[in-house]
Nucleic acid binder design. Structure first.
Lengths: 156, 156
DNA sequence: GAGGTAATTGCAACTTCTTGCACAAATGAC
DNA sequence: GTCATTTGTGCAAGAAGTTGCAATTACCTC
């Protein structure tokens, strides 16, 4: 059984029906390397089933999100993206000035979970965070030691 | 000079104009205790200036957000809320099952910033996080030791 | 205080995502 | 395989937020 079929089977075990639409959306997310937007998923689905509606895509994404098979991450302006949870936990550092995005391995955030559990009894979903800020290039006291202060090399 | 007037002055120093609309929106956010939605802000503004458009509210909120006078936080479904940054940094633990929200003091998250700066040269904006997960009541191995397993006391 | 200029606003159209509803189809029983 | 049940889908309308544009107005200079 291939990867997305495993998730599909779990869906069915939870009492949800396995429709071709759901299978296709799962397969597309599974096969994709990076993060997909709802619109991208919709377009790929339509290459096979041209009559699938965008509302079905959103409803399926919300279901998969609720069951925690996928994560939804807002990677900056106009970019909500979806990805399988178990494709490896990772997070993003996103520069609010230039929009650049950097990967952040899970290890740096991981210690937070046990501390939240211990202190608040709260089991945090640290699946896929997007942390905004300023990258090295855009910090005023950045690499060139404020030589470019006031300049921007882009705008998020 | 009252609090919101200080921010207004900063706005002007940055080259932005002080319009009555902006002053009012600032005053409303400043005077409010909790987190306000765009719609709430719009309604309060209209009590004084009935002709202010919702788009002006959104544009002003986006400007204040860009200048980091306010934070925008998604506190669960259908709830994007705005708050002054310097009213004290705090974060939220939000239960995805029952929707309950718990305050999280900044201290627990604060150590992250220097580590991101050191390791990635990234100056993170750790202003106002919303961390989703399961609260003590909703965890299967929660307070009553799995007695209520399978039950939900609400739905986010 | 008057005038010029460019930022800001209100309006309307638009995009993105959600929801209600009637019909279609996945599942389970026979 | 057929039938009944109940979930899921497509469509269209709606809610939330954004954008283009002409008119307004805050701010600077005189």
């Amino acid at each position: 059984m291939t990867g997305h079929a495993t998730i599909a089977e779990s869906l069915r075990e939870e009492g949800y029906r396995l429709t071709p639409q759901r299978m296709m959306i799962l397969a597309i997310i599974y096969d994709s390397e990076g993060h997909l937007s709802a619109e991208e998923i919709h377009q790929r689905v339509r290459q096979q089933y041209p009559f699938v509606d965008i509302s079905t895509v959103y409803r399926t994404l919300n279901l998969l999100k609720k069951l925690r098979f996928i994560t939804e991450t807002d990677l900056g302006d106009e970019c909500v993206r979806y990805e399988l949870v178990d494709k490896g936990r990772h997070h993003h550092l996103i520069c609010r000035q230039c929009g650049a995005s950097f990967a952040l391995e899970h290890e740096l955030l991981a210690p937070l979970a046990p501390r939240l559990l211990e202190k608040y009894g709260f089991a945090a979903d640290l699946d896929h965070f997007a942390i905004f800020g300023l990258c090295q290039q855009c910090r005023p006291e950045g690499p060139a030691l404020a030589a470019k202060k006031g300049q921007q090399h882009g705008d998020a």
